[in-house]
Design a protein around this nucleic acid. Sequence first.
DNA 1: GTTGAGCGTT
Length: 267
Amino acid sequence: MSHFGRQGPPDIADTYSLLVLNITFRTTADGLFPLFDKYGKVVDIFIPRDRRTGESRGFAFVRYKYADEASKAVDRLDGRMVDGREITVQFAKYGPNAERIHKGRIIETSPRSKSSRSRSPSRRRHHDDYRDKGYRRRSRSRSYDRYERDRYRGGRDRDYRRRSRSRSASPDYKRRGRGRYDDERRSRSRSRSVDSRSPARRSPSPKRSPSPKKSIFPKKSPSPSPRRESPDTRSRDGRFPTSRSVSPRGRPEASQSPSPRNSDGDE
DNA sequence: GTTGAGCGTT
């Protein structure tokens, strides 16, 4: 009874949906219930959450029984501080089934589901069209970003969507002066160690890679990210377990000339 | 433990 949206949509025929944005990721329906219930009769509250992690996406849907109450809640709760964050309450524009909603009320539903429902022509396309709907995460959560991209792989449209939301941010001003500073610092560094005591230390960037390990390969080192290979992976047989990295032609001599080929699939 | 534009499930 306390948990909403646990069994699915109860009845959205005579309910008004409110979209609550900007809520904390820890805010739950129970936490919003008393807040919204104070302004009207809340039929149900649903908070979409990720299917992989199961965390809230940052917004919730509050269904009211009456429009007047919903409107009041929007006017009252819109801009309210919840859990230390200002939430944004407004009428939902889209319904759960892609229906059109006016003032939180569904005004357009399945047009064919009114007369005869004997035939069910809409009984296909019920697959999990996750990316079809443009399922996007809520943010580029640090490392999760890479993790997701690795999973989907090949989703160019996804990237496009993500980049689109940069319209509100302009952190380009923050990266100013850094280049100049770098240049200046580099200049100074050079002047300092002109040939005082470290002739081999004429690196323009002593802070970047002071000790790039041993130069195993005389040249060719385009890999800025030297991913460490699992020691146990190649320790299994004492040789390179890679199938295509050994010798596609059949050359048994692979231990002498370990081709620095990083064919791990940079794409 | 983390993040922050947006429109939804059994």
